[in-house]
Amino acid sequence: MFCEKAVELIRELHRMGDGQLPAFNEDGIRQVLEEMKALYEQNQSDVNEAKAEGRSELIPTIKFRHCCLLRNQRCIAAYLYDRLLRIRALRWEYGSVLPTNIRFHMCAEELDWFNQYKKSLATYMRSIGGDGGLDITQDMKPPKSLYIEVRCLKDHGEFEIDDGTVILLKKNSQHFLPRWKCEQLIRQGVLEHVIS
């Protein structure tokens, strides 16, 4: 049956229901596009034949191929769209710099889209909340205090806080830091929020 490759692309995403981004399946997309090209060409020649020789019995076949074309189109559109939803989510979960292994899974256009999204979000955040702007990716839960106790889960190097002091985030070291400075690192699994 036609369109099996296209559905394989959809299954690939569906298997990762938690929002992880599988590697961009360039080969799969290419195969679907090739199938579409073949379907289109066959249909075009059959349409011409039906018209020229009045062979109306070809119409069901033409309609069938047309369905397949539309089906392939839907699958590819859904594949690309769902990937964009995942890529958008990455900005919120990881922050503006993505780990290399994730970037490797994106195609050039997707990287470009991610950068554009990052920029629009940054522009928007600068435009609200007065002079300093407002980081809307912070304080996803109502904060209880300005400072929190955190433990380092891995070596992360030097880290500058508001007043200019630089501290060293070394594995297993414990610090008392401004909450808004840590939130992203906690989300990334570098720091762990300690509740005494």
Binding site: V7, I10, R11, L13, H14, G17, D18, G19, R74, C75, A77, A78, Y81, D82, L85, R86, R88, A89, L90, W92, E93, M140
Partner: peptide, 24 residues
Amino acid sequence: TQSYLPVPPGVGKEENFFSLDDIL
């Protein structure tokens, strides 16, 4: 709060065009 919210299925008679569930 999950940041990745997939397109939900249409349930009922109408499918959602972009829904992976509905395609399957």
